[in-house]
Computed example of a mutant assay.
Amino acid sequence: MEVEMLFVYYPRCSTCQKAKKWLDENNLKYTERHIVEDNPTYEDLKDWYSRSGLPLKKFFNTSG
C-alpha cells in the first residue's frame, strides 16, 4: 500500500527545497501545501502534534 503524505513547505526555504528534492529522488508521493498561502489551522496543528509524539517546539522554527 502506497501512502501519500502532506508536504507543508515554503518554496524559498533551502531546507524545504532539499526535503522536496529528497522526496522526489526517493519517488515518494506527496501533496504540496504552501505554508503562506494555506496556513495550517489550529485543528491541523493540534492533530499533527497529537499524532507525532514530538515535543511541541519541534513544530516551530526556533533558530531564526
Rank of each mutant, 00 (worst) to 15 (best):
residue 19 A to V: 14
residue 19 A to M: 14
residue 19 A to Y: 00
residue 20 K to D: 05
residue 20 K to M: 13
residue 21 K to Q: 13
residue 21 K to F: 08
residue 21 K to C: 00
residue 21 K to S: 10
residue 22 W to G: 00
residue 22 W to S: 06
residue 22 W to N: 05
residue 22 W to V: 04
residue 22 W to D: 01
residue 22 W to F: 11
residue 23 L to C: 05
residue 23 L to N: 03
residue 23 L to W: 04
residue 23 L to V: 04
residue 23 L to H: 03
residue 23 L to K: 02
residue 24 D to G: 00
residue 24 D to V: 15
residue 24 D to L: 15
residue 24 D to W: 00
residue 25 E to L: 12
residue 25 E to G: 03
residue 25 E to C: 01
residue 26 N to D: 05
residue 26 N to Y: 07
residue 26 N to M: 05
residue 27 N to I: 00
residue 27 N to F: 08
residue 27 N to S: 13
residue 27 N to G: 05
residue 28 L to S: 06
residue 28 L to W: 03
residue 29 K to L: 12
residue 29 K to S: 11
residue 29 K to N: 11
residue 29 K to I: 05
residue 31 T to N: 10
residue 32 E to V: 04
residue 32 E to G: 10
residue 32 E to N: 11
residue 32 E to P: 02
residue 32 E to C: 08
residue 33 R to Y: 06
residue 33 R to S: 03
residue 34 H to G: 00
residue 34 H to R: 08
residue 35 I to W: 00
residue 35 I to R: 08
residue 35 I to L: 12
residue 36 V to M: 07
residue 36 V to H: 10
residue 36 V to G: 02
residue 37 E to C: 06
residue 37 E to T: 07
residue 38 D to T: 15
residue 38 D to F: 10
residue 38 D to V: 11
residue 39 N to W: 03
residue 40 P to F: 05
residue 40 P to I: 07
residue 41 T to G: 04
residue 43 E to P: 00
residue 43 E to W: 07
residue 44 D to S: 03
residue 44 D to A: 02
residue 44 D to K: 02
residue 44 D to Y: 01
residue 45 L to T: 01
residue 46 K to I: 07
residue 46 K to E: 15
residue 47 D to E: 14
residue 47 D to C: 06
residue 48 W to S: 01
residue 48 W to Q: 02
residue 48 W to K: 03
residue 48 W to P: 03
residue 48 W to E: 02
residue 48 W to G: 02
residue 48 W to I: 09
residue 49 Y to P: 01
residue 49 Y to G: 02
residue 49 Y to W: 08
residue 50 S to V: 06
residue 50 S to R: 15
residue 50 S to D: 08
residue 50 S to Y: 09
residue 50 S to M: 12
residue 50 S to F: 10
residue 51 R to I: 04
residue 52 S to H: 11
residue 52 S to I: 08
residue 52 S to Y: 08
residue 53 G to N: 07
residue 53 G to T: 07
residue 53 G to E: 08
residue 55 P to A: 02
residue 55 P to Y: 04
residue 55 P to T: 03
residue 55 P to F: 01
residue 56 L to Q: 06
residue 56 L to C: 02
residue 56 L to D: 03
residue 56 L to Y: 11
residue 57 K to S: 09
residue 58 K to H: 15
residue 58 K to A: 15
residue 58 K to G: 00
residue 58 K to L: 05
residue 58 K to M: 14
residue 58 K to P: 00
residue 58 K to C: 15
residue 59 F to P: 01
residue 59 F to M: 05
residue 60 F to Y: 15
residue 61 N to M: 12
residue 61 N to L: 11
residue 61 N to K: 10
residue 62 T to C: 06
residue 62 T to F: 10
residue 62 T to E: 13
residue 62 T to W: 07
residue 62 T to S: 12
residue 62 T to L: 15
residue 63 S to A: 14
residue 63 S to Q: 12
residue 63 S to P: 00
residue 63 S to R: 13
residue 64 G to H: 09
residue 64 G to R: 14
residue 64 G to D: 15
